[in-house]
Amino acid sequence: MPSALVTGITGQDGLYLAELLLAKGYDVHGLIRGQNNPRREVVQALVPEVRLHTGDLTDMSSVVRAVRESQPDEVYNLGAISFVAYSWQNAALTTDVTGKGVLTVLEAVRLHGGDDPSAVRFYQASSSEMFGKAQEVPQRETTRLWPRSPYGVAKAFGHHMTVNYRESYGMHASSGILFNHESPRRGPEFVTRKITRAVARIHLGLQDELVLGNLDARRDWGYAGDYVEAMWLMLQQEQPDDYVIATGETHSVREFVEAAFAHVGIDDWARYVRLSEEFRRPAEVHELVGDATRARERLAWKPQVGFVELVSMMVENDLKEQSRR
């Protein structure tokens, strides 16, 4: 039975990945931060077979201990402070966790491997936010990085550090440059879940309006459940590499809002939406769309869930959740 250690086990990707690995017969371990973490119950409810280890990406000793106790064949580093808006308010903490935390896990894995640096296969969750002020459309693995947020800068550090450890020590270390991926498990602070939750509440008469910052920003949105399969496929390859994971389609926030309201039969959605400067980024990323040719050709991966299906899935989940309140 192969063993895997997943940091960020409490997030949407961590939960979907844990389900995937368990279905494939893995012994799955998760790193969870803090005493009495409220997300512990979510993990235990959805993936009770996962063995949890308390640790923190800013604490090398706890990560080393988790690696020693789990004896992993594969390590998936999904842990990060991943809410982009929050990263401007807490740039130093975002740097410590999302950026330097990658180095902490890489070093723990390298030390654990001993004389065989490729003994443990490592996956780093890189992000399309690294492209920021995109220098070409669509973005691919070779596109110049120009991050436009502390989160994007931290992710770029972790990405380059992963490449450096692969080239310096011969580690089997791969990065997945994942474009925006959503699901019903996405946190309500993210704009996609904020939209679908508000639409559900407006439809049920529990809320009057949806307040957003920028309807014109365009993103390449996919389904998180599809994207975790790509993570696993990367670590099954003989040679490590970096892969863009994306749908290749771009949609605006406006289109996302329109699709969400359409699911509940509301066509004149504009009267429920108000724009506020409070929710605009200091440095906006206007359009991101990925070229996943390498993933298609080498991993035989392609997304299964389309844009409208994804939005409908999220709205339907929020309708059920809000109806129970």
Score class of each variant (00 low, 15 high):
residue 270 A to D: 15
residue 288 L to W: 02
residue 243 Y to Q: 08
residue 237 Q to P: 00
residue 291 D to I: 11
residue 285 V to C: 10
residue 259 A to R: 05
residue 228 V to W: 08
residue 236 Q to F: 09
residue 229 E to I: 15
residue 261 F to K: 03
residue 276 S to C: 08
residue 240 P to V: 03
residue 223 Y to F: 15
residue 225 G to M: 12
residue 273 V to M: 09
residue 287 E to L: 10
residue 259 A to P: 01
residue 275 L to N: 13
residue 268 D to T: 09
residue 234 M to Q: 13
residue 292 A to W: 11
residue 271 R to Q: 15
residue 223 Y to P: 00
residue 287 E to Y: 00
residue 262 A to G: 06
residue 293 T to S: 15
residue 274 R to A: 13
residue 279 F to D: 04
residue 270 A to L: 12
residue 284 E to M: 11
residue 257 V to C: 06
residue 283 A to Q: 14
residue 237 Q to L: 11
residue 233 L to R: 15
residue 266 I to V: 13
residue 244 V to G: 07
residue 261 F to H: 02
residue 269 W to D: 01
residue 251 H to A: 03
residue 226 D to S: 10
residue 276 S to K: 10
residue 255 E to N: 06
residue 271 R to W: 01
residue 277 E to I: 00
residue 252 S to A: 08
residue 270 A to S: 14
residue 252 S to I: 03
residue 258 E to S: 14
residue 232 W to Y: 15
residue 269 W to S: 03
residue 288 L to N: 02
residue 237 Q to H: 04
residue 230 A to D: 05
residue 228 V to Y: 09
residue 285 V to K: 03
residue 240 P to N: 02
residue 292 A to E: 10
residue 264 V to C: 01
residue 280 R to N: 10
residue 228 V to A: 11
residue 269 W to M: 06
residue 223 Y to H: 14
residue 228 V to T: 11
residue 281 R to W: 05
residue 291 D to W: 12
residue 277 E to T: 11
residue 273 V to L: 12
residue 239 Q to T: 08
residue 284 E to K: 11
residue 244 V to H: 07
residue 262 A to W: 00
residue 243 Y to C: 07
residue 272 Y to P: 09
residue 292 A to Q: 12
residue 250 T to P: 00
residue 232 W to H: 15
residue 284 E to P: 10
residue 279 F to R: 09
residue 285 V to L: 10
residue 247 T to Q: 08
residue 258 E to P: 01
residue 269 W to E: 04
residue 278 E to Y: 01
residue 289 V to K: 07
residue 252 S to E: 04
residue 280 R to L: 08
residue 264 V to R: 01
residue 224 A to Q: 05
residue 237 Q to D: 07
residue 241 D to N: 07
residue 254 R to L: 14
residue 249 E to T: 11
residue 248 G to N: 09
residue 251 H to N: 07
residue 248 G to V: 07
residue 279 F to W: 12
residue 289 V to P: 00
residue 268 D to H: 07
residue 236 Q to T: 15
residue 232 W to N: 12
residue 265 G to N: 00
residue 228 V to I: 14
residue 248 G to R: 12
residue 251 H to P: 03
residue 249 E to W: 06
residue 224 A to M: 09
residue 226 D to T: 08
residue 258 E to A: 15
residue 285 V to A: 10
residue 273 V to E: 10
residue 285 V to G: 03
residue 258 E to Y: 06
residue 252 S to F: 02
residue 261 F to V: 04
